[in-house]
Structures are given as C-alpha cells and as structure tokens.
C-alpha cells in the first residue's frame, strides 16, 4: 500500500473525507445544533442552490455568443443544474442515510443474535435441527420484499405497534420502521446462520475433541473453542451480509420507511429530475458500501490470529474482487 502514493489513492481519501464530512456535519446540524438555534436549522441547506441555478441559466443563454465556433455549452448547464439539485436535496438524503444506517446496523446485530444459536443447533443437532433447517430454507427461498409484505400488509403488526405508546414520538421512529427491522432481522438471521454454519463446519473436528479431552463439556467446547474461531472465519461472509443489508434496506421504502431510496424517489417524482437524483442516490449507497467493506477488512485484520497466513492474503484477494 505504501509504495502506491498515486492519484487514485489520494482521490479516494478526498472522496471519503468529503462524504463522511458531509454526513456527519449534517447530522450534527440537524440534531445537535438546530435545537440550540445554531447553524442553518434542521433540514436547511448550508448553501443556497440559487447561484448555481443562475449560472446554469447563463450558460443556457450564451450558446450562441461564443463566436464563430458555436460551441455547445449545454452540457455545462446540465452539470450546474445537477449540482444545484444536489445542494437542494442533500439535507433530505443525509436524513435518509441515517435511517438506512440504523436499519442496517440494528438488523445485522439482532440477526446475528438469532443466527448463532440457529447455526449451532443446525450443526450440533438436537431435536430442533430440522426446525433450524426449515426456517433457513423457507426464509432463503422467498423474496425479501414478499416477506416485508407479509409483515406489513398481511399481519396486524401495524395495529399492535400503534398501540405501543412510544412508537412514532420524538426520536422513536414510526411503526413501519419497526416492521422493517423485524423483517430484515428475520431475513438476515437465516443468511447469517448459513454463513456461520459453513464456518462451524470448517473448524477442524479435532478442536472439539481436544477441548473435551481437557474436560470441557460439549457446550463449553463449542462456546470457548469452536465459536471464537468460527466467528473469525465468518467475517468475510459477514461483510457480504452487511453490504447486502445496506443495499436491500432500500426495499423498506416500499413500506414507507423514510430511508434513502424512499426520500430520493419522493424527490424524483415531484421534480421529475430522475437522472441527477438517482445518480446522487447511487453515489450515496456506493459510499456506504465501500465504507462498510473497508471497515470490515480492518476488523478482519485486527482480529486475525497471528501466524495464520489467511488474514492479509484473503483480504488482498477480496479487495481485488471489489
């Protein structure tokens, strides 16, 4: 890495700083400073898009004035228009990104909490092994969107959640958000259970035998010896799951959760500016996904067992794949 002080690397750093600087400062403005009356206020722009729009207007009018060459300056106008729109929608997207991130992170962790016992039951048997199999196969065999529909339209969760007093007040989000969390948790738990099952099976059988030979019970052996190794093996798969959840959290927009996609599609359908809005949206998602893969890569190197060649090498192999 160090022998590559090239432009691409520099651009990546600049882009990362700009992206997270924007998101973090936006959140800070909305929740910390706005209540105190500092800054532009909740959801208000830092900059006014007006000068950019004016500039765009100027270029559109000056196409003929550049002389005999008759250079078309329309593309410049388009770019400036896009920039103006970006400035205008940025606060809304930042708020949507917050919902996307919370939805993803909470569902991933809750899903993991269900997935670990599910995978252990599946591998080490017990009377519930068939139940674990049925659960994972059913969830993995049907589309996430259909699952969200079952929860949102099919069951009376909405009625039930509306009765809970705190839902939808202050910082506590609307019931659709909770339904989305339930849906993503269930969906994610089935996939994570599969990843963890794979990792459990890749831990050498001798490890459990050796644990039992020093007098640990089977469940202690699984807990202290097999699982700690498993969870390390599972990190690459876990990265995939994180990326998957970030991207598929966009489906929560269908059940009116105000995450990134929902916000963008509302803007697009009112302004009819599909191209710039969705381009911007895609960029925000890519920013989130690349951050997630990078962070998980760091985590993997951090917890890698020294001397086990994998860590660095596998990471390399995967970065190439991105």
């Amino acid at each position: 890495m160090t022998d590559r002080p090239d432009l691409g690397w520099l651009l990546t750093i600049v882009a990362a700083v700009a992206f997270w600087g924007w998101l973090l400062s936006r959140w800070a403005t909305d929740w910390l400073l706005a209540p105190l009356g500092i800054g532009p206020g909740r959801g208000e722009n830092y900059l006014s898009p007006a000068p950019l729009e004016d500039a765009a207007g100027t270029f559109e009018g000056t196409a003929a004035a550049v002389g005999p060459l008759r250079v078309r300056v329309d593309p410049i106008a388009t770019v400036l228009d896009g920039a103006a729109l970006a400035v205008e929608v940025a606060p809304v997207l930042a708020d949507g990104a917050w919902h996307t991130i919370v939805l993803t992170a909470v569902s991933l962790l809750l899903g993991l909490a269900i997935a670990v016992p599910l995978a252990v039951v599946r591998v080490y048997g017990g009377p519930f092994a068939w139940f674990a199999l049925l659960y994972t196969e059913l969830i993995r065999g049907t589309p996430l969107l259909a699952q969200l529909f079952v929860l949102y339209y099919g069951l009376d969760l909405a009625v039930w959640l509306n009765d809970v007093d705190v839902v939808g007040r202050g910082f506590v989000p609307e019931y659709a958000f909770w339904i989305a969390i339930i849906g993503f948790t269930i969906n994610g738990s089935a996939y994570q259970a599969e990843y963890i099952r794979g990792a459990l099976e890749s831990v050498d059988e001798g490890q459990l035998t050796a644990a039992r030979a020093v007098g640990l019970s089977k469940s202690e052996g699984i807990r202290y010896v097999v699982l700690p190794q498993t969870l390390r093996y599972a990190i690459p798969a876990w990265t995939n799951e994180l990326v998957y959840l970030i991207k598929y959290s966009s489906l929560a927009g269908f059940i009116t959760v105000p995450e990134l996609y929902y916000r963008a599609s509302r803007i697009a359908s009112t302004t009819l500016e599909y191209t710039p809005v969705f381009t911007l949206l895609a960029l925000v998602y890519i920013g989130l996904v690349l951050t997630a893969t990078d962070a998980m890569g760091r985590l993997e190197r951090r917890v890698a067992v020294p001397g086990l060649g994998g860590g660095e090498g596998r990471q390399q192999a995967r970065t190439e794949g991105e």
Binding site: I246, K247, L251, A282, Y285, E322
Partner: peptide, 8 residues
C-alpha cells in the same frame, strides 16, 4: 455491486 438493485 455497490448499488442496490432497486436503484439500478
């Protein structure tokens, strides 16, 4: 791979 299929 970094963009949701919905957006694509």
């Amino acid at each position: 791979r970094g963009t949701p299929i919905l957006v694509i």
